[in-house]
């Protein structure tokens, strides 16, 4: 499903965030990308999500080589992903429900079906009763759950999360990771980057450990 070979990302100025990384992730895997701050976890997530382009090497996602992917094809590739970020990237000018609906509007889902699916996604993360609230009124944990609802609403094949528990207390973080684990159990490929290795014990995932951009 995701295959990297000698993947390198060098930023302007010469800094290499990811160096000669190779790995294979199968459909249905749950993978933790770990490493210290600055190890290259976020860059690797961005490369997989086609937010960044590889400098060299190959990265094949769903059979498409991202190094050679046309710019216009990137949105369609991203529709197969559910992306969750540490800072959630929620929109505070609209309701919880509208935040989730955005994903379905982008793919042109009929309004009634979109609302039904958005509510189902909110129900999965326990936020259905807050559908009319503004995201600003939610706690950090709830905001992250909302971000997950938005990520999963279009039934992605890959759930990709960059430090989703970074700003949360232990209890909320555990709840969030449990939600990811529940999606993994139903066959979704889950990739989570985290600098906190103690979560690995709880979920028995595959681990990609990065150190200064290299896989160790």
């Amino acid at each position: 499903m995701i295959s990297a070979s000698h993947l390198t990302k060098r930023y302007p100025g010469g800094y290499e965030a990811v160096k000669e990384v190779s790995f294979d992730i199968e459909a249905g895997d749950m993978v933790f990308i770990t490493g210290h701050s600055g190890a290259g976890k976020t860059t690797l997530v961005k490369l997989i999500a086609a937010i960044e382009r590889p400098t060299s090497g190959s990265l094949i996602v769903n059979g498409q080589n991202l190094a050679a992917l046309r710019r216009s094809a990137i949105p369609y590739l991203r529709r197969h992903f559910g992306l969750v970020f540490q800072d959630q990237k929620l929109l505070f000018d609209r309701s919880v429900l509208a935040n989730v609906l955005l994903h379905l509007q982008i793919v042109g889902q009929p309004p009634k079906e979109a609302v039904r699916r958005a509510r189902a996604a909110l129900d999965k993360v326990g936020l259905l009763e807050r559908e009319r609230a503004n995201p600003i009124a939610l706690s950090g944990g709830e905001q992250q759950r909302l971000a997950i609802a938005r990520a999963v609403v279009n039934r992605p094949t890959v759930l990709l999360a960059d430090e989703p528990t970074g700003n949360l207390d232990t209890e909320s973080a555990s709840a969030i990771l449990d939600i990811f684990a529940s999606f993994h159990q139903v066959g979704v490929t889950v990739l989570i980057s985290t600098h906190d290795p103690h979560w690995i014990r709880n979920y028995q995932p595959k681990v990609l450990q990065l150190d200064h951009g290299r896989l160790v």
Partner: peptide, 16 residues
């Protein structure tokens, strides 16, 4: 700008 960034991240085309 925030809406545009989020929309692009979750698969919005330029046309959208």
């Amino acid at each position: 700008a925030a809406e545009i960034e989020v929309a692009r991240l979750i698969g919005a085309t330029n046309a959208f």
